[in-house]
Design a protein around this nucleic acid. Structure first.
Lengths: 214, 214
DNA sequence: TAGATTGTTAATCGATTAACAATC
DNA sequence: TAGATTGTTAATCGATTAACAATC
């Protein structure tokens, strides 16, 4: 049993970066690359690249390197990006609307189906061809339309309540833009985008740059 | 010399979370907390909390714990959040506009001064009371208005060019929302918000949840 | 003083890097 | 075959956790 060795989060969080750089290489019609060459453009050590990729079995070939196309496809599959997802956006304020309009999302497998809000002024409006529904209809909508992921862009006071509602549904994942840590049903995965945390780190770094002199 | 021991990024990236939870405690009128109690609500081990805080000198008191107010103020200062910053937003598309309208930013020390775009249809428009200027004016505007930080929300093809322009200015930091890694002047700090990377990690986690049975 | 809890050192754990045998 | 480069083991480095003496 227990045949899969657990992959560490450190590795997982590097995968999208591999994915991005490999896509770029393909666009430049580079079809073959060694860990050393990839190291130079992506900024990880060649050793780390080989370790990372080996977690998922033999992508490379001794004496040759990696086939860019094969590696790109491989990582696409590892990240489960070849399958589509049905998405709802909860909170149709600035951030919710920005995500609904985001071009790269529209060309991705993340298919936004509807938005939800409490604000009566927003309910019934359309963002592109997407309707904004009353948040009261959320639970029923998720079940009826086989929704996998919720993008949560609600004000922080309201977000845990939304998480409670979502915990009662068959939703699988939450992409959380609200600056709170959510308590959810243990079978739901939460990925946080804590924008303020990121900005605060920038503030720190700004004021702790290496002093110019060596 | 070299009196400051270097603080690791792992510690730095936890600071905003401390900041958030301490603020919440203050709002609940909790004025005193032990590392053990804080551990239970924030989810770090008590040991890690004490290690983290000790990087910055004695916040606590043996036998008593930490003064919430003092700790909150301390971390605010460590993150340099008590000083204001002058900010421009580059790229007045969905994300740029969402940031310009973001309520928590308006109550923060990050003072958005203007937006910039290439699109003639956007140039001259106003977002709230903020003007959208021609990107050509960016360099001059930064120098004239003592801008510290740029929020970069441009399409990925254009972002490195923007970074090149910024590298010629006195800007100190870039908050980068574009899904590329920027090459900049070494005295400029870049903090990335790679949204697609985050979403791809969610996709992975969704499909690799702990199998229900033990 | 006795009890509580920090500050700090030591032990452990995990992740990264180095090295090299395997092999294309 | 010789050269290149992986896959993989071993060494190192860094971060987390445990333990406990210091002290409020």
């Amino acid at each position: 049993m227990d045949s899969k060795k657990k992959i560490s989060m450190a590795v997982i969080r590097r995968l999208p970066k591999y994915h991005r750089y490999l896509k770029e290489l393909l666009e430049k019609e580079v079809y073959r690359i060694s860990s050393k060459e990839l190291s130079e453009i992506i900024g990880f050590t060649a050793s780390q690249i080989r370790q990372d990729l080996n977690n998922f079995g033999g992508f490379g070939q001794q004496g040759y390197g990696y086939n860019v196309d094969e590696l790109y496809e491989g990582i696409t599959k590892i990240l489960y990006l070849s399958q589509p997802y049905n998405v709802v956006i909860i909170g149709a304020g600035n951030m919710g609307q920005a995500l609904a309009n985001y071009p790269w999302l529209q060309n991705s497998g993340f298919r936004i189906r509807a938005l939800f809000d409490v604000n009566p002024r927003l309910i019934g409006l359309k963002i592109r061809d997407l309707e904004i529904y009353d948040i009261e209809e959320l639970e029923a909508y998720i079940e009826k339309n086989d929704i996998n992921i919720a993008f949560v862009c609600t004000p922080k006071e309201k977000t845990q309540k939304i998480a409670n509602v979502l915990s009662k549904t068959s939703i699988q994942g939450i992409w959380n833009f609200s600056p709170v840590d959510l308590k959810v049903n243990s079978n739901i995965v939460v990925e946080n985008v804590h924008l303020s945390d990121s900005l605060f780190v920038l503030s720190y770094l700004l004021n702790n740059r290496e002093e110019s002199e060596e």
